[in-house]
Nucleic acid binder design. Sequence first.
DNA 1: TCCTCCTCGA
Length: 526
Amino acid sequence: MKPLPSVIDFTQLLAALVKMKHYSVAVSVFSKMCSCSIPVNIITYNTAINCCCHFKRVDCGFALLAAIFKRGFVPDVVTYTTLLRGLISQDKFLEAELMFKNLLKCNQIQPNAVIFNTIINGQCKTGNTSQAMMLLRYMEKKGCMPNVVNYNTVIDSLSKDRLVDDALGLLAEMSDRGIQPDVVTYSSLIQGLCNLNRWDDITQLLKDMGRHKISPNKHTYSILVDAHARDGKVKDAEYLIELMIQRGQPPDVVTYSALMDGYCLRGELDKALAVLRTMTSEGILPDSQTYNILINGYCKKMKVDTAIHLLEEMPLKGLTPTIETYSTILDGLLRTRRLDEAHKFYKKMLNQGVKLNVVTCRILLHGLCWNGLVGEAMSMFHNMESCGLVPDIHIYSILIHGLFKDSKVDKARNLFHNLLLKGLQPSVKTYTIMIHGFCQEGLLEEAYKILLEMEEHNCLPTEATYNILIRGCFKNKMYDGGCLLIDDMVAHGFKADASTASIVFDLLQLKDQDPALLALQKKFMP
DNA sequence: TCCTCCTCGA
């Protein structure tokens, strides 16, 4: 109190609380400061607004903006950046974009690279990478040179959209303009290449990093560990972890979780558990996600009881199960047809205040259909909208599949038309399910129409799509049609391979010695 | 003294 610390000291105190993620404490300290007439300035306000935003209370952030005006302070670009980020983190991207445009139009701020990036990142995260790219060009026109973070944001998004070559183009552009890429740039690119299994390019990029004297960090290594683990190469993943330790970048909970996931994918649950023990003994505490990976592993192996045991263990370790934890177990119960337990579990989950999301609904609908309860699935589907949940294309595919399985052809057809009316783009899966359903019902013409529709919408059929339709033709003795389709699939670059041949083979075994089938046998069987 | 980008889960 004597002397009273400066406004900078108080602001640093607040910032320290933010860094420790004690947002509610920080906000109450801030309001105490205000009521005690302790000096504050615009930076103190910005820090407080940032707290509100992390606290998922943008509304309080805007209340503080009003207070700024009331006290005669002038909000700066940081104030607005923080508010925009708050809006975006609460899925209000369109509002954020509108506010940003107004700020520019009214010359309220001199936009800098940070505020531009906040919007660029928002566009990337809402699936509009191409618009983000346009904004990257636009900021330059506004006299604001893009920095490495702006490039990194777009490069990361392109890489995640599988457009790694475009991302690599931006890397080249950076070098041309003298903007040095950093470890984040390379990490994003490596991840993009990992998703496409372009191992040679990854090696090349790692060499490139070395030439630029940029060392991989925890993130980079974790990306590589994850990629190897996903690819089943757990031994290589283990080797990478050793390398991390040697190079002074010790693995963390993310690295070990990725390795665990690799073991789970191979069904080696004992080894996954061993990883959990290793990390704990090294003082790295598992988080909810680590448990979710393990729980998922056990559910996929139909060992739902062990999964439930792990769920019960979480609170003992100070962890709160997430919606993902509950959804995984629910999926396990439904897949093992433990309907009563699933129902009880679902009720309990809702009682605990867990909020449903689209993925949980997807799991429930899939589970209901899988257990032959299409009617209940449909009524749940109709309830979704009243909960503010918008069904996605996967949900439509699941329901259409369920309806066909129950021979409800008209309802399936209706649902398909409805999704088109809603402006949803059917996926290859949706189309394939339609084709499969129509084939089962002997409606070959309708099935074929769907194939044509796919091509019209530039949705490329897969080998499986063709095989399903071909099988449908043969089963319905439309041999010529089947043969034409085989030619068609070959023309589209697919091989009429073993599974196509086996269709013919299956039918030969089932059916009488139909001469047309015998002719086909000559064509396909060795 | 405050605000942007990268790693694991259904």
